[in-house]
Design a binder for these strands. Structure first.
Length: 219
DNA sequence: CACCAGGCAAGTA
DNA sequence: TACTTGCATGGT
């Protein structure tokens, strides 16, 4: 539309949203499904994650109690299609155990906790890094946390919208300092960045000249 | 056939 | 601190 906004990040968002529309992430029927998916999708195509989640759903295993009590080896077989199934089974077990220890096994208790301490508890789980933790907080808990991923860094640095050498926390701060703290906006923006990166900002054969972010004017 | 996908931890120098 | 490697299936 008009791009009358003076904020660079909002202008990028508007241009992406005009081009792609609502993305409606995260596909998941329940917070638990989102949490499981957040681990399973680590460096993995979402389609493979859907297969793995489908396996769990088919046997009614997508409940906290069932997953928590399931043998790690059995869980690994269920999630095999998502790849790295042994490490991911262990990581899921670690995560479920933390929720059991810290929040009586109730995701709703974790989500009711403060952002700082729930994030801290998530990050202390072996296998949960900043992106996985923030994905859970944004997409499962509905907290206003901006999720950064490799695409975010690639798209924004390639368009010279952020410093080339930055890290997760600084990039996240930059987004959150420059955007209104809005869950729906953070949700859609992250998904839109993934969409534009997949289409125009691949490592090999980038098609930058056709990208809708061409000539976004700087600050 | 090669390449990569909605990361993270552990090892090395 | 700054790279590198292991983990692994499935689509293009």
């Amino acid at each position: 539309m008009k791009e009358e906004n003076s904020n660079l990040f909002l202008r990028v968002y508007e241009r992406l949203h005009d081009h792609y529309g609502d993305q409606c992430w995260w596909p998941g029927d329940t917070p638990l499904e989102v949490l499981v998916g957040a681990v399973l999708t680590q460096n993995t195509n979402w389609r493979n994650v859907e297969k793995a989640i489908g396996n769990l759903k088919k046997d009614q295993c997508l409940s906290f109690a069932v997953l928590h009590d399931m043998d790690q080896e059995i869980l690994a077989e269920y999630i095999r299609p998502s790849g790295y199934y042994n490490v991911k089974a262990r990581r899921l077990k670690n995560l479920l155990q933390m929720v059991k220890d810290e929040y009586e096994g109730e995701l709703s208790f974790m989500f009711a906790d403060s952002l700082e301490s729930s994030r801290e508890n998530l990050l202390k789980v072996k296998g949960v890094g900043p992106e996985t933790a923030d994905s859970i907080l944004l997409y499962a808990a509905g907290k206003p946390v901006f999720v950064i991923d490799t695409y975010t860094h690639r798209v924004f640095s390639r368009h010279q919208l952020v410093e080339e050498n930055t890290d997760y926390f600084r990039l996240q701060q930059e987004f959150m300092d420059n955007l209104p703290s809005d869950v729906k906006l953070f949700n859609e923006f992250h998904a839109l960045i993934v969409s534009v990166a997949k289409e125009f900002c691949k490592k090999k054969e980038p098609r930058c000249s056709e990208c809708p972010l061409q000539r976004v004017e700087g600050k």
